[in-house]
Nucleic acid binder design. Structure first.
Lengths: 344, 344
DNA sequence: ATAGAACACTTAAACGTTTAGATAAACGAG
DNA sequence: CTCGTTTATCTAAACGTTTAAGTGTTCTAT
């Protein structure tokens, strides 16, 4: 612990501890003269107020808990960055808990029990650490409604879905709509899509966006062009082959994540289909590698930083007991690269 | 703050606060009878000890600070995961600070002043939060000796270098030696390398490993085969072209990170050099995308989790005031994929 | 010159725990 | 049955701050 306390400072500066506290916090006027004297002693002794004591007295810890389902999943660090960014501004600190869910229970959405166990343990620990609120970063976009009990402390969810509390997501539907519109503007009319697993909410939303684009742009609706993947490269590979083997090939494929887009590119490579000459490919997520593939793939960038930032903003409001007004949903941004061209 | 305190529990259980504390911490014998009574009340009221008060009295916060130069840089999350893993075991919590260095000052190693400023600010905040120690995750492997002042609190560095304190790195030299040996075993003798910037320590270590392999395996030493890159894809691209334009082409290229390996593959693609038929390519870092490229690239996996774990272990020892014994350096692991073959 | 307000500073209680030391009760040996 | 010891519990101080209330001191306006 800090060796030197406020008493020592007070003694050396010939004032009471109260005065030291006042100059430290600026909570009352202190004559310039004495203020400077106190400051000087503080400097000299390199005094730092003991935060434990402060928290105890103030009943405020200036600390929030961040629970990440798994920090090593691609979207999490950026979200944390956003939270941290906002927290900095409000002089809040971040107590981080990593659930390691990917490593512990994998993507099995049904292990609700062990899931609930890990999550609530983490919450419980954080609460006893006196965090003023929690932001929960879900990586697999499941619906968490009712799973987590914070005994009244404010919580906001980032990236995942819940009905009972505040949760910040980006605008999935509009993103896939925008992607489709982009392909249409490039001249494509036969567009294949490879979706994620349909038990995931964003997957359904992205599909909605696709469907909206199909109707609005009056594309021929062909069920053969719709493939159900599972987010993994292998499924992109397999389904792209199916699409490319159609008697009437699509001229473009929209994969609902970049990983499946990789699979698409592999399939194209194998079948000697050149991208983007013979086939346009579009991904989703703007994973770092999408810029490293050959050709560099056009994709939708996720507003992860913004999600984190907004989550923290909302949490701060909840902590202050204020109403949190609905903000416009963060939107994705189209990243134009080399994998899309006009059809020949 | 917690609404219900130890006094309330004591009152309801008809004991003194001391007794409650004893059953809570097991620091003294309490008759089974009363212990159970106290426990029951604790349960009923969902009582959680106020950590601020505990910390104040115990002079222990069970919290360490983690400073990350930038959480969004590829190696950081995995290191945090390792730290978190170990911290969990020791019942320690993590107060996270993200310097956002990449965004604020970029890779400019020379901005020592503003660098020092950010880092020491973070340290200072953490110290006043009463962390018991700090692990500092550097992303650009510069030498940080003397830059950071923790006023006596233990600190350990992960991934970066320092002479004055404990720092945990992986074994760079042996990794590049192993990579080279692998290529040699595959039958290559003319091996080009593209190094990182030579002002970076790992870059020099990796070069040492290369050189050691060259001499030990009695490869012809040809300075033309050694190219100095800057870690970026573009430099890999440019330098691979130079290598491929040599009158006596190398049959394999070892790029000292996966990003530059991407550049190599682009160059090869453009020059119609097929990988691995006409040229073997090896990367370094096992970035996620290395598995997504076509062909999937063989590379060296970094023991990031282990680095984080060891860092936390060492820190725990320092905190306890114990000697930290030198452990064997974590080593990289060769990930064999498709980009390397025997020369034709 | 003086009352009253404004200002600068101090005193001491409080925040919710832990823990040494005190006390009381129960036990065991003779 | 007594004395010493062990065991169970309690009392109260302490941890390092903040802050309401109190005490001087210095202005300001008359």
């Amino acid at each position: 612990m800090s060796e030197v306390g406020i008493k020592e400072i007070a003694a050396r500066a010939n004032v009471s501890t109260a005065t030291v506290s006042y100059v430290l916090n600026g909570t009352r006027n202190v004559k310039l003269n004495t203020r400077e004297r106190v400051m000087r002693v503080i400097e000299e002794m390199n005094y730092k107020p003991n935060n434990a004591a402060q928290s105890l007295k103030r009943k405020r810890t200036n600390t929030i808990g961040v629970i990440a389902e798994d920090v090593t999943v691609f979207n999490v660090p950026e979200i944390i960055d956003g939270i941290n960014d906002c927290a900095d501004k409000m002089d809040m600190h971040i107590l981080l808990t990593n659930l390691r869910l990917d490593k512990r229970i994998g993507r099995n959405f049904d292990q609700t029990d062990s899931y609930r166990h890990y999550a609530n343990n983490a919450v419980s620990e954080l609460l006893s650490k006196q965090v003023e609120g929690i932001v929960y970063i879900g990586v697999h976009p499941r619906d968490l409604t009712g799973l987590i009990d914070t005994s009244g402390k404010p919580i906001v969810y980032a990236y995942c879905y819940t009905q009972s509390d505040i949760s910040i997501q980006y605008h999935d539907e509009q993103a896939s709509y925008e992607a489709m519109t982009y392909l249409v503007k490039k001249g494509h009319t036969r567009i294949g899509i490879i979706s994620g697993t349909m038990d995931s909410i964003p997957s359904r939303l992205r599909f909605n966006g696709y469907y909206k684009a199909v109707t609005e742009h009056e594309l021929p609706f062909d069920p053969q062009l719709i493939k159900m993947g599972n987010w993994e490269a292998e499924s992109g590979y397999r389904l792209a082959k199916e699409l490319l083997e159609l008697e009437q090939r699509p001229t473009a494929i929209l994969a609902m994540n970049d990983v499946m887009a990789v699979g698409v590119m592999r399939a194209a490579d194998e079948m000697n289909v050149q991208i983007p000459r013979d086939l346009s490919v579009m991904g989703f997520d703007n994973r770092e590698f999408s810029d490293y593939l050959i050709p560099r793939v056009t994709t939708m960038d996720l507003p992860l930083h913004e999600i984190g930032f907004q989550a923290m903003e909302s949490l701060a409001l909840l902590i202050k007991g204020e109403q949190v007004e609905r903000k416009p949903m963060p939107v994705c941004k189209l990243i134009e690269r080399e994998s899309v061209d006009a059809p020949r």
